Amino acid sequence: MAFSALFYGFKSDGPGGGMKWKPGVALYSFNHFPFEQALDKADSINAVYVEGFFFHKLGEGFNGHSIPNLTDEEIKKMKGILDKRGLKMKSLYADGKSEEEWKANFEFARKMGLEFLNGEPQKQHWDAIEKLAEQYKMKVAIHEHAKGSSYFWHPDSVVMAMQGRPHFRACADIGHWVRSGLDPVKCLQTLQGKIICLHIKDLDAAGNLKANDVMVGTGVIDYPAIIAELKRQRFDGYVYIEREGNWDKNITDVDHALKFLDRLNR
């Protein structure tokens, strides 16, 4: 796989220089396809990093098992598929209805060599998850979903969850903030210093919970303002394109989004 300028092309110094963020793709963009085919799509557009999701129907070779219930042999197979394409999976969108299920997520993450889990844990599990995060030496990124579909729709709820829990961080989902009628720049400012990844999408309307997902840069989201704020914060985390539309043929859309962000980051 030939690495693109997205990985190597950042300037390192001074205001206005490119950020050393880590660009990639949320595999949920390709959720209509099994794991190996989804990786082929990410590889074909020179993505570097991918984020998995726990309910991915992985396809042949995984015996109908889902993440995080893979055997050690199946995890080895998953690593081999990634390595063959030169792709790196450093995070997983996870969920759990009990402490035991969250422990299984952390155990999978440890075996896979992930850096963090991403999700929307229920309040009654926060303290248990913090203890697991300490035990496994891993961060947990709180993901914001749209208003009405998750407790975590506003950055203030993420700030609340992080209080007294040093392993909790934030996953900034730009599109869901805008769908919920929030100003994404102000949201980024609220979470400054705590953001470890972004989910990037675009919409055809702001403040509309039924807004349609569109190609990044063609909708209502002011990405130049967002990139300017991220540069001010010297953001260096993961940036995942999450295209939630045109499901069966959106690879061109994802490629466009990666290149669009790269241009803004120069």
Rank of each mutant, 00 (worst) to 15 (best):
D204I: 02
A205D: 12
A205G: 08
A205M: 08
A206W: 01
A206K: 15
A206H: 05
G207K: 07
G207A: 10
G207Q: 09
G207E: 08
N208L: 09
N208P: 04
N208S: 10
N208E: 12
N208C: 06
L209W: 03
L209I: 15
L209G: 10
L209F: 01
K210S: 14
K210E: 14
K210W: 07
K210N: 14
A211D: 09
A211N: 09
N212P: 02
N212D: 13
N212L: 08
N212Q: 14
N212F: 02
D213R: 00
D213T: 07
D213E: 10
D213H: 12
D213S: 13
V214D: 06
V214N: 04
V214Y: 03
V214F: 03
M215R: 12
M215T: 14
M215Q: 14
V216F: 02
V216G: 03
G217S: 06
G217T: 09
G217V: 11
G217A: 06
G217W: 05
T218N: 11
G219C: 07
G219D: 12
V220R: 05
V220Q: 06
I221K: 02
D222Y: 01
D222M: 02
D222N: 15
Y223C: 11
Y223Q: 10
Y223F: 15
Y223R: 07
Y223H: 10
P224C: 11
A225Q: 14
A225G: 02
A225N: 07
I226K: 03
I226L: 06
I226S: 05
I226M: 03
I226E: 05
I227F: 05
I227W: 01
I227N: 04
I227T: 13
I227A: 04
I227M: 15
A228F: 01
A228P: 00
A228M: 06
A228L: 10
E229S: 10
E229P: 08
E229Q: 15
E229V: 05
L230V: 03
L230E: 06
L230F: 00
K231N: 08
K231A: 11
K231P: 00
R232F: 07
R232P: 00
R232D: 04
R232S: 12
Q233V: 02
R234C: 01
R234Y: 08
R234K: 15
F235H: 01
F235P: 00
D236E: 15
D236V: 00
G237M: 09
G237K: 06
G237H: 06
Y238C: 08
Y238A: 10
Y238F: 15
V239M: 15
Y240G: 04
Y240I: 07
Y240C: 06
Y240P: 02
I241E: 06
I241A: 05
I241C: 07
E242P: 12
E242V: 11
E242T: 12
E242I: 11
E242M: 09
E242R: 11
E242F: 01
R243F: 13
R243L: 10
R243H: 15
R243S: 14
E244L: 04
E244D: 15
G245W: 05
N246G: 13
N246R: 07
W247F: 15
W247S: 10
W247G: 03
W247C: 01
D248F: 08
D248L: 11
D248I: 11
D248P: 07
K249T: 08
K249M: 02
K249W: 00
K249Q: 10
N250F: 04
N250H: 09
N250I: 03
N250W: 01
I251N: 14
I251Y: 00
T252L: 13
T252S: 08
T252Y: 09
D253A: 11
D253M: 05
